[in-house]
């Protein structure tokens, strides 16, 4: 672990205009994220917890530079993603990748999975050794290189999530953003995927932003936790501290819902 942060998020704010209620009034504004900040080193995991509407997916999209913030900075290895030109940004994209919630929706059902896994390589214009790198990525997530020739429907939900992870790591990123990556999975499958993410992190030194509504899941794989509600940061700190002595009543509700009392 080096001391320079891999990812630094400073005072990040995003507002959305809502539909006008009346022609004479200005559109109401929803502040989806307000003043969020944290820093993350290589090999570390930050958990972001909150419910729908808390701003956690907005945070993910801003870190991934899918959209622009109204204020604040996202520094990846020191460069502000939202201050870069689109060419410069494209050059950096291989360094940060995302795993989505829905393993069914995020894979093209008409394409062999090898094609889907190689998608980020094509997007970056890396056309060499594609077959070899797909095979390597499949092995890293516990699948067989021969699986590249199969279609998504031939796999179970857990295997499809492994495929989505293979696609995310094929560009050898330094940062992985996982948005509800295990929420759609059964408990025993979820444990396998969480272990896989931890294995990959140890092997590849990945920094990870792990977004989930489930505090128990977040606590079991994260070093630090950020609790969001209505776009505001309620609480942040080492995972163990937040769980042992949650300061905010909302965090206590989340703990209760996670069944941490049993």
């Amino acid at each position: 672990m080096t001391d320079a942060p891999l990812l630094e998020v400073r005072n990040l704010t995003r507002r959305y205009k809502l539909p006008r209620q009346s022609l004479l009034r200005r559109s109401p504004v929803l502040t989806a994220l307000e003043g969020a900040g944290f820093s993350l080193r290589a090999g570390e995991t930050l958990g972001v917890v909150g419910e729908s509407g808390s701003g956690k997916s907005t945070l993910a999209r801003l870190i991934m530079a899918f959209e622009r913030p109204d204020a604040g900075e996202v520094l990846f290895n020191g460069s502000d993603l939202h201050a870069l030109s689109s060419e410069e940004l494209r050059g950096l994209r291989r360094g940060f990748q995302m795993v989505f919630q829905d393993p069914f929706g995020s894979l093209n059902p008409r394409r062999r999975i090898g094609w889907s896994i190689a998608e980020p390589l094509r997007a970056n214009g890396e056309e060499t050794q594609v077959t070899y790198r797909v095979a390597e990525a499949l092995e890293q997530v516990g699948l067989h290189p021969a699986d590249a020739g199969k279609y998504p429907h031939e796999f179970s939900g857990g295997q499809r999530q492994r495929i989505a992870i293979a696609r995310a790591i094929i560009t050898k990123p330094a940062l992985l953003v996982a948005d509800e990556a295990v929420s759609a999975l059964d408990v025993s499958v979820q444990a396998q995927i969480l272990n896989l993410l931890m294995d990959l992190q140890d092997d590849l030194g990945l920094g990870m932003v792990f977004i989930s509504h489930d505090l128990a899941v977040v606590a079991s794989i994260c070093d630090r936790v950020l609790v969001l509600q209505h776009g505001k940061t309620l609480e942040s700190g080492p995972a163990a501290d937040v769980l042992r002595a949650p300061e905010h009543p909302y965090t206590k509700t989340l703990l209760k819902a996670a069944g941490a009392h049993t």
């Binding site: 025993s188 979820q190 444990a191 272990n195 931890m198 128990a216 606590a219 995972a239 163990a240 769980l243």
Partner: peptide, 26 residues
């Protein structure tokens, strides 16, 4: 296999503790 915050964290070597799993799949 349920994540248990009490069992989480890193061991003496700085490795994160893994969750117990049921091997294989249905």
């Amino acid at each position: 296999a349920r994540p248990d915050p009490a069992e989480a964290g890193r061991d003496a070597n700085g490795k994160r503790r893994r969750l117990p799993t049921i091997p294989g799949s249905v």
